[in-house]
């Protein structure tokens, strides 16, 4: 599938992503974004439980994952992005993030919670992760 070079997230959704992440502190938070992958546009946010319940690791709870993945498809949307937070480190994929990524067509959106007052514009960054390598892509909030 040919996909957009950058990702657009509605501002209201970006705020909810950050709110979810802050609500899960001190643990990492995670969730999925549905929408139009070809256009690079998110339209829905689906917070998930972190099965690891850890400040350093995340694993989208298997029960939430199966429900959300097929729910997105049943709603006529694509999986657009996989979201997780880093509680204290930058919104940059770690070595673990790069090694375990299995969705090369999707975007990966990371939030850093290092600054408790950061806006979505400064806390969120978007990436692609493929074959163990990450590349930052433009992220627009509108």
């Amino acid at each position: 599938m040919v996909t957009a070079e950058g990702l657009t997230i509605p501002r209201e959704i970006a705020s909810r992503m950050l709110e979810h992440a802050r609500g899960e502190l001190p643990n990492e938070a995670c969730g999925l974004l549905g929408g139009d992958l070809g256009a690079g546009r998110a339209a829905s946010f689906h917070p998930a439980r972190n099965a690891e319940a850890s400040p350093l690791r995340y694993n989208v709870h298997p029960d939430d994952l199966v429900r959300i993945i097929f729910g997105i498809e049943d709603a006529g949307e694509d999986l657009v992005a996989i979201f997780h937070s880093h509680s204290a480190s930058p919104a940059v994929p770690s070595a673990t993030d790069r090694r375990t990524a299995q969705y090369p067509e999707a975007f990966y959106v990371l939030a850093t919670l290092a600054d408790a007052d950061a806006s979505p514009e400064t806390a969120l960054r978007a990436w692609r992760i493929s074959d163990g390598a990450s590349t930052e892509v433009p992220l627009a909030l509108e």
Binding site: E52, L65, I82, S94, T96, A101
Partner: peptide
């Protein structure tokens, strides 16, 4: 039966 790649990672 469903097969589904996990979504996992971590800051370390």
């Amino acid at each position: 039966i469903i097969l589904l790649p996990a979504m996992a990672g971590g800051s370390r």
